[in-house]
Write a protein that binds this DNA or RNA. Structure first.
Ligand SMILES: [Zn+2]
Length: 159
DNA sequence: CACTTTTGACCGTTG
DNA sequence: GCAACGGTCAAAAGT
């Protein structure tokens, strides 16, 4: 299943350029975001590769833009290969579920991420990324086997 | 002990 | 001014 994404203006919150991203297959389990083929890739010159049908549409994000993914997930925690530390949680209007705020756990990386479940559509999770990582995902640097990646995934921050 | 999460306070923006 | 809103801080609690 493809994942919807949209480009978000950090200033106004307006969203545009909605399209499809590829569901990740690198990390097993309930982990649909794949940093290799998405805005999450810190080493990629381009910022997104499209789905099979959309082919390789790509676009650079500027400093005032964030990218938001809309994902169907059976669990609230959606893994993307990076480690995150939660630093806040806020009840948001018009959503039954709170918005959670995370920062990248890597030292000297300023990327942040917001996550909220949708009360409109059951199982829908929205994740917004701000900034670009200046490093590779920790498991990519230290672990090689799928089994080990799975172990990292299931022990990552769940809230 | 080290590190992460929780949670209300705090603060800037907006109407 | 003021209150609603949402983003962040930080002390305490949790693991
Ligand atoms: Zn990072």
């Amino acid at each position: 299943m493809d994942i919807l994404y949209e480009i978000v203006n950090e200033r106004t919150g307006d969203a545009s350029n909605m399209g499809n991203a590829i569901e990740g297959g690198i990390i097993p389990g309930d982990s649909p975001l794949n940093f290799r083929s998405s805005f999450l890739n810190p080493t990629s010159g381009t910022t997104l590769t499209g789905s099979r049908s959309y082919r390789y549409s790509s676009r650079q994000l500027n400093d005032a833009e964030a990218v938001r993914f809309h994902i169907m997930s059976s669990t609230i925690n959606v893994c993307d290969g990076f480690a995150w530390l939660k630093y806040g949680e806020k009840k948001i209007k018009h959503n039954l579920y709170p918005r959670c705020y995370f920062r990248c756990a890597h030292p000297n990386c300023t990327v942040s991420r917001q996550r909220e479940a949708s009360s409109d559509m059951q199982g829908m999770v929205s994740i917004t990324y701000f900034g670009k990582h200046n490093h590779l995902p920790p498991q990519e640097q230290t672990l090689n086997t799928r089994r080990k990646k799975r172990e990292v995934y299931i022990t990552e921050s769940q809230s």
